[in-house]
Design a protein around this nucleic acid. Structure first.
Length: 608
DNA sequence: TTTAGGG
DNA sequence: CCCTAAA
């Protein structure tokens, strides 16, 4: 039999949704079954052909879908979202669109209107030029007609013609609209057509007829190419790179890696330079189209379904008889017409963006881990931390903990899980930190975070106070009061920064000169009295000595509650302490590193 | 007031 | 941190 074309159309575009999920009854689509004659003409399918086609559907899930669709249709209130675009996308511009989808998806009304007009124009033209061809006319939703076989007159208004060429078709049912890309994944892309959905519904089996005869890939739309690809390789592809598809298909069909870059025709598994230009190709194309609806982007969601059922049947290819001949004159379908006009340019355009393929391929992945992405801003910029490893870890954490994005804190071995957000470093503290620190080893820790936060808080407080006017001391007092009022004595956690200053001060002025130190190093921390400094120093000493034996360890975490003090600091504290102690003088030489010694020596004179 | 030390 | 004694 000749290729069959199912044309379906409706006035207002198709609802979009994932298969059978977003079907709206209000938007019936009429499918017409036509046959492509050898010369390219379209002829209404005969009953026999119809039966044949229906036969194809027999084992199909599509039937299920049909039913579902019908059922669902009644409860699908929201087809408002997509339809208009979809209808606009399909039709003549369908293929083109599909290629440029990302861009075009949300077309403006104006654009849509233009397209509408264009479509109508083409339609009329088509009719005029090839009256005997079948023109499929979509029915507007308010006037749904069951599809019938036969030539429909083109209706002048509002109806859009959709020449969805698909071999399998049922008589006018709205069911075919079923498959649209999942909104989430690629709404716009698939919006390109209800057709695609149709094809998806029915394309459980690749249409191998596509492969028979001469195959001119050049003129195929991406969807067609994808279909051919499927027929060739038995698997679905989302790739939208025409070039890639063509080459792939050509290679597959010819079993050769040598695929000319110029246009060619594949004939009997051989690559033949494409001398025959437009016409034959078009014929081929129409032929191809008969094999499938121009498939829109196949979404991953639907892929699975096809995957298993789409095996290649080599025999079928042979069985098919070639469709020779050409199609004369004007195209029957506006789709074709449009193709004619646009294919060239469009091809260029489409080819121009090969990168899209990668985008697409990526998008597959993206779609898959769409959810993950939602909850893992982790990857994003922020702290350029995670190595691949840690990334994996993160993901695992995510999985393990649901949506909570956490990260096992690497520091202190506490294994505490910390929400990522909390680890976002605020720039200032870090800066200070580094300014004051010579060592980098202790960057980013839990403590650091704590420190940072508290410090920042403080700073903010200061700022507030300052802005509030008056003097900062008074404000500090106020702050204290407030804190006191909180029943929490004047307690201020020592920040790393403060500790550093303290140590530095001690080094400079010697232990005991607290007031000096305070005056010099803690001007900005009015709440720290010399007594505080002394106390803190005492604590530091204690900590440093206590920790000494254990040393080498990254940090002192004897007291998780208090701000842990980086070992290097403790070391230095100890050195200073020894220095100031009578015995310290002796110990010093052996213990000090050059770095420390230098510092020590600096102050030493002053103190001793 | 500042230090030093105990609580 | 607080308190206090001593300087």
């Amino acid at each position: 039999m000749g290729a069959l074309i199912v044309a379906e159309g409706n006035g207002e575009g198709l609802p979009c949704g994932s298969i059978a999920e977003k079907i709206c009854a209000s938007d019936p689509v009429v499918y017409q079954l036509v046959r492509v004659e050898g010369d390219g003409r379209l002829v209404p399918a005969t009953d026999d052909e119809l039966m044949e086609v229906e036969h194809l559907l027999e084992d199909d899930k599509s039937k299920l879908h049909l039913t579902e669709a019908k059922e669902l249709s009644s409860q699908c209130p929201s087809n408002e979202g997509f339809p208009s675009n979809m209808s606009d996308l399909e039709g003549p511009e369908g293929p083109v669109k599909s290629d440029n989808l990302e861009v075009d998806a949300p077309t403006s009304d104006a654009t849509n209107e233009v397209k509408q007009e264009e479509r109508l124009r083409l339609k009329r033209e088509a009719v005029r030029h090839s009256p005997e061809y079948m023109v499929v006319d979509g029915q507007s939703s308010d006037n749904p007609k069951p599809s019938k076989i036969g030539v429909n007159k083109v209706q002048s208004e509002s109806t859009s013609i959709r020449t969805a060429t698909y071999p399998i078709c049922l008589s006018g049912q709205d069911l075919f609209q079923s498959g649209c890309a999942e909104p989430c994944s690629e709404p716009t892309n698939d919006a390109v057509s209800g057709r695609s959905s149709v094809s998806e519904s029915y394309s459980n089996k690749p249409d191998f007829s596509v492969l028979k005869g001469e195959l001119c890939l050049d003129n195929l739309t991406i969807r067609e190419l994808q279909e051919v690809f499927r027929a060739t390789f038995g698997r679905q592809t989302n790739v939208k790179d025409k070039l890639w598809l063509k080459r792939r298909i050509a290679m597959g069909l010819t079993n050769s890696c040598h695929v000319p870059t110029s246009s060619f025709v594949i004939k009997e598994n051989m690559i033949v330079p494409n001398k025959v230009k437009e016409t034959p190709c078009r014929v081929q194309r129409s032929m191809c189209r008969t094999g499938f609806l121009t498939t829109d982007l196949v979404t991953s969601s639907t892929n699975d379904r096809y995957e298993h059922s789409s095996k290649r049947h080599p025999n079928q290819i042979k069985d098919q008889k070639a469709l020779p001949g050409k199609r004369p004159g004007k195209p029957l379908l506006e789709y074709d017409t449009n193709e004619n006009h646009q294919t060239g340019q469009c091809a260029a355009k489409r080819i121009r963006k090969p990168t899209k393929r990668y985008i697409e391929e990526l998008s597959e992945v993206d779609i898959m881990d769409c959810n993950d992405r939602l909850i893992s801003p982790v990857k994003s910029p922020g702290h350029g931390q995670p190595s691949p490893k840690s990334q994996i870890k993160v993901d695992r954490d995510i999985i393990a903990q649901g949506n909570l994005v956490t990260r096992k804190d690497s520091l202190g071995g506490s294994g505490v899980r910390i929400p990522y957000v909390s680890r976002v470093r605020r720039s200032r503290p870090r800066k200070n930190f580094f300014d004051l620190m010579n060592f980098v080893s202790m960057e980013g820790d839990r403590r650091d975070v704590q420190t940072s936060n508290s410090e920042e808080e403080r700073d903010q407080e200061h700022e507030k106070m300052d802005h509030a006017g008056d003097n900062s001391d008074a404000n500090a007092d106020i702050l204290q009061t407030v804190e006191t009022g909180n029943k929490r004595k004047h307690h201020r956690a020592w920040t790393l920064c403060e500790v550093l200053k303290l140590v530095e001060g001690v080094a400079r002025f010697g232990a005991g000169r607290w007031s000096e130190i305070r005056r010099v190093s803690f001007t900005s921390y009015s709440y720290r009295t010399s007594v505080d400094l002394k106390d803190k120093w005492r604590n530091l000493l204690r900590a440093s000595f206590a920790q000494e034996p254990t040393e080498k360890g990254a940090r002192n975490f004897r007291k998780p509650t208090s701000v842990p003090i980086p070992t290097p600091i403790l070391l230095r504290v100890r050195e200073l302490a020894e220095m100031h102690s009578p015995a310290g003088i002796e110990l010093r030489p052996s213990k000090f590193s050059g770095h420390d010694r230098k510092i020590v020596q600096e102050k030493e004179p002053g103190f001793l």
